[in-house]
Computed example of a mutant assay.
Amino acid sequence: MPKKILVIDDAPYVQQFTNALTEKGYLIFAISPGTDLYQVIHQEQPDLVIIDAFYNHSSILLKLNHLIEHNIPFLLFSDDEHIEELIKPHQLGALSFLVKPITDKQIKLAVETTLYWHTARLQLERRADNLNITIENNRKISVALGILMQRYQLDNAKAFSLLRKAARDEQCRILDVALKITENFESSLANFPSASSIANNEQEQATELLLELKYLLTS
């Protein structure tokens, strides 16, 4: 599916580089700077926005903030070679900045680079989020393992085996069992069966441990 690029400028010179991008396979649509950007973004959901940086400075800042809030990459262009010093486009979130006149090669490269780095950033953010979730989930499971190890004098491997068996019996994730154990342990501690009643036989011990764990999960 072709990438959709919104160009916020309807000046005649824009037609030159939009034609170059169309030939490259991008789906291009242009609007005038006075058009309701918020409605267009909602309707069209562009993958990239190209905007003239020097059109109505205060209005541009509002537009850029809206794009940033919706995680839409954008590149800026201007006919003033000193505009970069004025508005600091990279600090505003722009991944590329071009000065007119813009050649076909320049606009193609700028678009490809902007889309590439935006995709790379999203992937990195997702990996970081997944890593944080994994670390937090492992921490929660470790807390539950610690409860089982301390309560029943088990080593880590046996405690995890017990946790895994309970998850299979309850037909849920190990994390769900761990969260339930942690949530209910303190409130159930006063009425919890004594660990001293556990049998010496390993099979009987495993059975009684599961019964006590089931009590903990359902209390």
Rank of each mutant, 00 (worst) to 15 (best):
L122Q: 13
D79P: 04
N184R: 15
L163R: 01
F185D: 08
F160K: 14
L154G: 01
K63I: 08
A120I: 06
P73W: 01
H70I: 00
R127Q: 12
G25D: 02
A20I: 10
L27D: 06
L21G: 00
A199S: 10
N138A: 09
T18H: 12
L145M: 11
A110C: 14
N191W: 12
I135V: 14
Q106V: 11
N137H: 13
I133S: 09
Y116W: 07
L115C: 03
S197Y: 08
K214L: 07
A199M: 07
Q45W: 02
F185Y: 15
K158Y: 03
R121A: 10
N191A: 13
P101W: 14
V99F: 03
R127L: 15
R151Y: 08
K158Q: 09
H82M: 14
N65F: 08
F160N: 11
S188L: 13
A53S: 05
L6W: 00
E208C: 02
F77W: 14
I198F: 09
T134M: 08
D79Y: 15
L217I: 12
I8W: 11
I50V: 13
R121Q: 15
A166L: 15
L64G: 08
L216N: 02
I51V: 15
P193H: 05
P193N: 00
G146V: 07
M1Q: 07
A94D: 07
D52W: 03
A11S: 15
P46W: 06
H42W: 10
A53I: 10
E186M: 09
I181A: 10
E112D: 12
E125I: 08
G146H: 04
I141C: 04
T114S: 15
V7A: 02
L86W: 07
L61M: 15
D80T: 04
A53V: 06
A190V: 11
R139Q: 12
I147H: 04
K4L: 06
I8M: 11
I8F: 13
L48K: 01
A199L: 09
Q171F: 11
S187H: 09
A144G: 00
P73L: 05
L131H: 00
Q150R: 15
Q106L: 11
Q150V: 08
G34S: 14
T218D: 12
Y38S: 11
I50G: 01
N71P: 06
L148N: 01
T207V: 05
K4E: 05
H82P: 07
S32W: 02
G146D: 02
K180R: 15
K180G: 08
Q153Y: 10
V177E: 00
N130V: 10
E85I: 05
I50K: 03
Q123K: 14
N19I: 11
Q153C: 06
H118A: 05
C172Q: 05
M1A: 08
L27Y: 02
E202T: 04
I28Q: 07
L48E: 01
R139G: 05
S58N: 13
I28Y: 05
E202C: 00
N201E: 10
H118Q: 03
Q91L: 09
L131Q: 08
I174R: 13
N132R: 15
R164D: 14
V49M: 00
L209S: 02
I50H: 03
I31L: 10
D47S: 04
H42E: 14
A94H: 03
L48Q: 00
Q43E: 12
N137M: 05
E208H: 07
